[in-house]
Design a protein around this nucleic acid. Sequence first.
DNA 1: GATCTACTGGACTCGTGGTACAGTGACCGT
DNA 2: ACGGTCACTGTACCACGAGTCCAGTAGATC
Lengths: 217, 217
Amino acid sequence: MAQQEMPAVTFIKPRSTGTTRDRLLTAAEVAILDKGFAATSIEELIAEVGITKGGFFYHFPDKNALVIAILERHLAAEEAWLDGLFAQAASEAGSDDPLQIFLCFLALLQAQMEALPDVHPGCLIAACCFQERLFRPEVHRLAAANLLNWRARFTGVLTGIAAVHPPRRPVEIEALADMLVVLVDGAIILSKTVRQKEALPRQIGIYATLLRSLFET
Amino acid sequence: MAQQEMPAVTFIKPRSTGTTRDRLLTAAEVAILDKGFAATSIEELIAEVGITKGGFFYHFPDKNALVIAILERHLAAEEAWLDGLFAQAASEAGSDDPLQIFLCFLALLQAQMEALPDVHPGCLIAACCFQERLFRPEVHRLAAANLLNWRARFTGVLTGIAAVHPPRRPVEIEALADMLVVLVDGAIILSKTVRQKEALPRQIGIYATLLRSLFET
DNA sequence: GATCTACTGGACTCGTGGTACAGTGACCGT
DNA sequence: ACGGTCACTGTACCACGAGTCCAGTAGATC
């Protein structure tokens, strides 16, 4: 059955950088953020990476598994990035005051978002959120774990701040922690939709202002 | 070609309420919010409404046109709903102070979100945002117009407030207006993802607190 | 030399979007 | 009573993408 022509033209193109699996993940992540999960076809991914369909299904049992792998890789990277930003803020704040350190963190975050060349590419978690039934529960669990992680992180920081600087008005610390996450996700939607990349850094800035208004003496 | 059996069994089932087109829109809106656009098949919609594929394409040239129609209907309804809430707030505030009226509006909004039986079904605009390439530019334009409308509305209100109550700290009024929209969209993502319906009303509440912190004397 | 890994290549099924078009029952104006 | 329009039905058909199956194979490892 198999025709005997061109049997040995394998591995001509350079494997470029990273493993095939990793390059698939990267190509898929970019494509999903750009145009959504459903609009991203496996055929387009394998064309970009330079493998065949069989090769794709060798790595991932289905499209869902691909999303799960992307999310796992993304969450780890984000964790490291957040740790780095916090460490940098702690060293640059020039103070031990948790409020000053957090404000410094927010300024760093804002600066990074401002430095993006284009509107923020989007939030994987949000993208998953609106595709629910396309995914297995595992995807949902990963997304939830990520948001709860942010919540826990910022709740800890804000609790520390409130202990030193009693808030001017009673606030639920956890809701205030959620607010930053919510603001980032919401601002990504806004900036993508109205095509204004300033929207995201502006929201971070205003969050800092409101924190000052609430905690600073 | 056409077989002559069962020719006249048409219109047996009651047309239920509303036009077929409207019932299609409603079914599609619910399904899209529930599981996303891509996961919503035309076949499933026509089965629910009780028409055939030909009937669907009689009303809409394609799936995109369906989304556009849903968005248009939704935007009009939302406009009316916002007008109603503002009017109710103005009459219930017991004051001419724009800040008090806006705080009353926020309280009403919060109460409505609290009263939802389940997590908020989701934001059509956000759902569209993460499906970009599946849609024609028209869809994107409608979504952007909607967000800009909210922005204009709240910017007007907040400008009026700032004129009477000079803010404690300098803030960009427009960013503060965006913040409410951003908070609502972001909180919908949060509440859907971690399955906590309180997240949305809590964010509205905290927005009100922060406004007080900023504007109240 | 045997085995394992990471694929290739091709054939096939199924679901869904979308096209095309002839027919038809109910209603509406004349 | 007649013609036309509206709102569909019913059927047939194409394209495309997900996913399955599997035999073969180049290169590295033991």
